[in-house]
Each structure stands twice: as structure tokens, then as C-alpha cells.
């Protein structure tokens, strides 16, 4: 019995590789807070992922609770920050965008469902002060 020719195997794998390269995007930050998104049935998709900046709010992940406690915290990029750092964060994100895209900048608030609104209100007020007015409350579609 002749062996099955495997000469086209690399082609198949490369095709798979290209598929994944095109459909996925790089993981940019590592979550340092636990986020269980609330459910909402009316969610819409985020239009331009490259114009989004993320603000994560939630209690720190288990290995970090010894150091940071369990109170809700704000994570910008890769570290815990306070509301006063949002201004610099937004300015940096805005600088990284081209002139034309700046008006479409969206701030995505990824917040745990158990967090109280106090901290979210503070973030919202700070965003208003930086005139980053386009926001999105991240939520997930309820399972059918």
C-alpha cells in the first residue's frame, strides 16, 4: 500500500494560518481585574475596534487581591490607576490616532456587573472633562 502523500499538508496548514491571521486581532492588554459583563439584549457591535480605548473596572484578580484588596479598581492599559490618570490616558490614546479619526474615538467601559455606579460616575465625569464623549457600555448578549 502506497503512503498517503503529505506534500499538500503545508498548504492546508498555511491556509488555516492565514484564516486566523485575518480574522483575529492581537490581544493587547492582560486583564488585571475580574469582569463579568452584564447582560443586555439591545447591544450593538463596536464599529471600529482600532479607535476604541478600554477602561476596565472591577475587583482585582485573585493573585493580586493580597496586594490590592477586593475593592473595585480601574485598570488602564496594564496597571491599576485612579480617576485622575484618565486624563493622561485619553490624551495619549488621542495622540496615537490620526487627525481624522479623533472625532470617532470611542471609550469602551468594561465594567463588572457587581460594581457600584459611584466609580462609574466618577469615570464618566472625568471623560466629560476630557471631552471624550463617545462611550460604550460593554455588555454581552444574553444566551438564548
Amino acid at each position: 500500500m502506497p503512503a498517503i502523500s503529505t506534500s499538500s499538508l503545508p498548504d492546508i496548514v498555511f491556509m488555516l494560518l492565514f484564516f486566523f491571521m485575518v480574522t483575529t486581532s492581537m490581544r493587547e492588554t492582560e486583564n488585571k481585574v475580574m469582569i463579568k459583563l452584564p447582560e443586555a439584549s439591545q447591544v450593538v457591535k463596536l464599529e471600529r475596534k482600532d479607535l476604541a480605548s478600554y477602561i476596565n473596572i472591577g475587583s482585582p484578580i485573585a493573585p493580586m487581591q493580597a496586594q490590592y484588596g477586593t475593592d473595585a479598581r480601574i485598570q488602564l492599559n496594564d496597571s491599576f490607576k485612579t480617576t485622575s490618570d484618565i486624563r493622561d490616558f485619553i490624551a495619549a490614546e488621542r495622540d496615537a490616532m490620526s487627525e481624522v479619526d479623533r472625532q470617532f474615538m470611542t471609550t469602551v467601559i468594561r465594567c463588572d456587573s457587581d460594581v457600584h455606579m459611584g466609580i462609574v460616575s466618577d469615570v464618566k465625569q472625568e471623560l466629560r472633562r476630557c471631552s471624550a464623549l463617545k462611550i460604550m457600555y460593554c455588555a454581552r448578549k444574553p444566551a438564548k
Partner: peptide
């Protein structure tokens, strides 16, 4: 290479409710 891309990328879509905050 395939494994590398599988590990480092995400496919999840961001869904949410869009809002416009009032200016200060």
C-alpha cells in the same frame, strides 16, 4: 506559527450600548 497566532490573538467581538455623554 498557527499555534502562535492561536495563542496570542482574540476573536471576541465587543458588544455594548453606545451613548454620547453631554459636554461639560
Amino acid at each position: 506559527l498557527l499555534c502562535y497566532f492561536l495563542m496570542t490573538t482574540t476573536m471576541d467581538q465587543d458588544n455594548g450600548l453606545s451613548r454620547r455623554l453631554p459636554p461639560i
